[in-house]
Simulated scan of single mutants.
Amino acid sequence: MTAHAHPVVLGQNQYGKAENRVVKVTRDGDTHRLKDLNVSVSLSGDMAEVHYSGDNANVLPTDTTKNTVFAFAKKHGIESAEAFGLLLARHFVDSRQPIHRARIRIEEYTWERLEGSGHSFARTGRETRTAQITYDGRAPEVLTGLKDLTVMNTTDSEFWGFVKDPYTTLPEDRDRILATSVSSWWRHAWTGGEADTPDWDASYDGARAHLLRAFADTYSLSLQQTLYAMGSRVIENRPEIDEIRFSMPNKHHFRVDLEPFGMANEAADGAVYLAADRPYGLIEATVLRAGAEARIPVDLTNL
């Protein structure tokens, strides 16, 4: 059955192999290095007939994409999540004519070497580094990000002056805990030129450092204000980044009412808090370099 023989037509589609868990060990004598990735491949292109009639002539099997991920990890190594994703994306598009677009999503998990050993590691409690590389045969687009970066200020945060209506019960607070778990993506201005390829690891470390410094340095009257300060600091200090998107839940900490027990529970005296996991406020926004076009999908941080 062809598309023209039926009033229903095919829309956007893609396929691939998701969550390929790749661990690459590089040995330099007795000192070993680890790269621990979760790689998802998604391909699209001239794939109408496989949907309409089951004709697989243009289909590269998802098992082949899985094998390619592991073969490339061995053949090329893993310099960074971004560099590895670029290699894969270009390979799938440039080597298979029916494939017009490849999207590689990567999560990277961090291990630290145990003191006194070259080959023993412990999984860290750090955030998960993320990357998405999209390539359509022309210029690649690289997004870098992170998720589960949990941060807290135990003071220097207030929340007051907000709208009140008959359903408002939240009291104003002049000294509160501000905590969140940051999910963020940032888009690089790089358009694929070999000469000006960013140092992906240095760029990630620099952006992360600015996010944390802005969180610590901002006297916050709202989580929105803190979010904007974090994004602004990255844009102002990292010229290779044009756009940064955040999804930041407000991890509420409420001072417990201890008056029934004859005890005051004031922040200045060292208060006790209830950490509430849900429901939570969810603050999301994009910060852009002036003149840049917003291109990071609004819902990407939820993937």
Score class of each variant (00 low, 15 high):
45 G>Y: 02
131 A>S: 15
17 K>H: 14
287 V>N: 04
70 F>L: 11
142 V>Y: 05
89 A>K: 04
222 S>L: 04
268 A>K: 15
266 E>Q: 13
201 D>P: 01
185 W>S: 03
237 N>W: 03
21 R>Y: 08
79 E>R: 12
113 R>D: 08
234 V>H: 02
242 D>V: 11
289 R>N: 09
296 I>L: 07
168 T>D: 13
91 H>I: 07
256 V>F: 06
193 G>S: 14
136 D>K: 06
302 N>L: 11
66 K>D: 02
290 A>E: 15
23 V>M: 08
41 V>Y: 01
301 T>C: 14
248 M>V: 05
286 T>F: 04
10 L>V: 15
297 P>Q: 10
140 P>I: 06
56 N>H: 09
150 T>G: 11
52 Y>N: 08
123 R>D: 09
298 V>N: 03
285 A>L: 06
16 G>E: 07
196 D>G: 04
63 D>C: 08
181 S>P: 07
204 Y>G: 01
215 F>I: 06
264 A>V: 12
254 F>E: 06
269 D>I: 08
111 W>M: 05
41 V>P: 00
238 R>I: 13
49 E>K: 10
127 E>K: 09
74 K>R: 14
115 E>K: 06
11 G>V: 13
112 E>D: 13
93 V>P: 01
276 A>S: 14
235 I>G: 01
113 R>M: 11
60 L>Y: 02
123 R>W: 09
302 N>F: 13
182 V>R: 01
36 D>T: 09
303 L>Q: 13
